[in-house]
Design a protein around this nucleic acid. Structure first.
Lengths: 236, 236
DNA sequence: TTCTGTGAACCATTTCACAGCT
DNA sequence: AGCTGTGAAATGGTTCACAGAA
């Protein structure tokens, strides 16, 4: 086991491997090889072995990986053996949609608070789990009381840096940001931005390329493989 | 002007540069240097010059870039001079939140249709713009009638591949996917996945590292810079 | 034999550093 | 003098290829 620094590309993939292992385990499968796993994601099998290799030797030569064991190891590595408590700043449509997203509980995340500065929203309770909406001025107090360790920024771009400063001041070290703004974070604080406009604009660039010009060949018929030159896929 | 193949990292940044240029233009600023631009995103200025250099020579030595001109050039490069018509599959909370997201119209995207297989939702109209919800069975017809060129997948993971197959069959070549599933796309079709669980799990990994262990130093006080060893930030 | 773990080779991306234009 | 455009160097990430364990 080394002590190199792990790239985010690797941790992203570990998360994806873990999800797949959970499904395989649910299907009653006991072992899996790096080759089989790689096929699920069209990835090179060496990539998977390298990713795991940063953290230890989890496999059995000639056999592959024991799914239950690897699952436990990856859960531990990703810090998902301890629960995380999430606060969402911005109780607009996106914020409330995220608050209601069920996929998170599987990974030991629970949304415990929303924040907004609209007095009409403060005091309300959102969604099936009745998550309370607090005044955005109370971020510091609620972060402490509720032991929030992850913040989600779902406010307009112009408010995002201010909100980030508030949650950093409250001691939150991990932030998922949906505001399309370039944020400056303190050292030791990790901000991960998901920018929908940029994602769409990158797709637009792809569509604007000659290689994708033959979207349909004159009528509505999809072009055949032979006509198309470019293939591409991105995760995250 | 070359004809190399452009990485998605570059197109992502072009989108971000463009947004910044739009703001600078709105503030009445006329020129900007790669150095000034770079400071906005804590990026190396050579990075910006390289990114632009793939597409032409847009700058003026000694002066920098004329904002209005570069804005027009980037808009054209990203294919944002032509409008894009977006269909969202899945009229759940995420799908409707996205349908109502205003940020997209600035980039010449308009959401023209939602799709669902819940009969209670089909026939409804969503949000301020009264976007119609169609039966998911009608994807092929509506894509043709409404000239949809970008699809957003906002359905549960188990349905995602099926939906992708449908939109590909309808001739859509650019897809933004929110389902946490590894999708297989045809050659010539670009799928971009935004995976919230993976984003959060990567943040969890960061929190689990010793270097971020001193979230607070015993009480609620944020750790000082000197105590913290790791800094990090990711866009997209 | 099969499949892991891992150096070495390869490829992609970023940064440096400077020639050359304005 | 200031700032772009771009080869060359440096860094980072992926794939190859194979020794060695089960």
């Amino acid at each position: 086991m080394k002590r190199e620094k792990i790239s985010e590309l690797t941790t992203n993939r570990l998360s994806v491997y873990l999800r797949c292992l959970n499904e395989l385990a649910a299907a009653g499968i006991k072992t899996v090889s790096s080759q089989e796993l790689a096929e699920q994601f069209n990835l090179n099998s060496a990539q998977i072995r390298k990713d795991l290799g940063y953290f230890g030797e989890f496999g059995v030569r000639g056999t592959g990986y024991y799914i239950e064991d690897l699952r436990a190891d990856l859960t531990k590595i990703l810090g998902l053996d301890k629960p995380h408590r999430v606060g969402i700043i911005g109780a607009g449509r996106l914020g409330t949609a995220l608050a209601n997203y069920n996929g998170l509980s599987k990974s030991n995340f629970s949304v415990v608070a929303l924040f907004d500065n609209d007095p009409n929203k403060v005091g309300e309770h959102v969604g099936h789990d009745r998550i309370p909406v607090f005044d955005a001025k109370k971020i510091a107090k609620v972060v402490r009381d509720e032991q929030i360790d992850v913040a989600v920024i779902a406010v307009p771009a112009r408010a995002a840096q201010r909100v980030l400063n508030q949650v950093m001041a409250a001691g939150v070290k991990a932030i998922l940001n949906f505001a399309p703004a370039p944020l400056k974070a303190r050292l030791g604080v990790k901000v991960r931005t998901v920018d929908l406009t940029t994602s769409l604009e990158s797709l637009s660039y792809f569509l604007a390329q000659p290689s994708s010009a033959l979207v349909t060949n004159g009528n509505g018929v999809p072009a055949s493989r032979a006509e198309i030159t470019q293939a591409d896929q991105t995760t995250l």
